[in-house]
Structures are given as C-alpha cells and as structure tokens.
C-alpha cells in the first residue's frame, strides 16, 4: 500500500496531528514501508474466521456508583485543576469556539 503526501495529510487531519511538509513526506514513506509488510495478511485464507469472534468487551449493568473512594474524590477537584492547562472558576478554559471572527 503506497501512502502519498495527500493521503498522509488526510489521515493527519483525521488524527488531529500537525506536520510540516517534510515531516509529512517522511511519515508517508515510513507508513508505505510498514503497510507493505502488513499487506502479507492478504495472502491468508481467513474463511470461517470472523472479525468479531469473541472480542466483545463485557459491559457492566448501567447503575451509577462511585469509581474512586470518597476521600480521593474530595481531593480530586483541586488536583484536576492543577493538571489542567487552563482553569477558571471550576471550568476548563479553551479558545472561543463560536462567534468572533
């Protein structure tokens, strides 16, 4: 499978990754090499083997319950704030997404 710059750009946009042109060309070349290796999977006879066979994650009952203990939860807000890149009045701050220019 050959990945060119335009295809690499399409994937980078889907993945929310920023690359310059040189970086994108390098990535396209590396992906081509790796996908060429992976293409050997095309030769395998997979008749009778299904994609989803037994790879289903079991779900718990949809009942609300605490996932951490009370003491941790009480201190968590302060630590969440400390880990946040921008935080004000109990909210994460991001650049304006509506209106403006």
């Amino acid at each position: 499978m050959k990945i060119d710059r335009a295809e690499a750009r399409r994937i980078a946009d889907l993945a929310h990754l920023e690359f310059d042109d040189a970086g994108l060309d390098r990535m396209a070349a590396e992906m081509t090499k790796i996908l060429t290796y992976i293409d050997q999977l095309r030769e395998v006879d997979v008749e009778g083997f299904e994609e989803r066979e037994r790879h289903v994650t079991p779900m718990r009952e949809d009942e609300p319950r605490p996932s951490v203990d009370r003491e941790v939860a009480l201190n968590a807000r302060e630590q969440v704030a400390r880990n946040a890149p921008a935080w004000r009045d109990g909210f994460f701050v991001v650049p304006k997404v509506i209106g403006g220019d």
């Binding site: 990945i3 980078a12 992906m31 996908l35 083997f49 299904e50 994609e51 066979e53």
Partner: peptide, 24 residues
C-alpha cells in the same frame, strides 16, 4: 497515523477487519 489509516473509511475492512480475522 497507522491506526487512523486502518480504521478510516475505505480501508477498514482490508486492514482492521482482515487483521482481526487472521487474529481469530
């Protein structure tokens, strides 16, 4: 990038789907 490619429209069956079948 490789993972996004393998799940992207048009390539999912040929890559992710096939890999899961060989895995089975």
């Amino acid at each position: 990038m490789l993972g996004t490619f393998a799940l992207s429209s048009g390539y999912y069956d040929a890559y992710y789907g096939r890999a899961q079948r060989v895995r089975a």
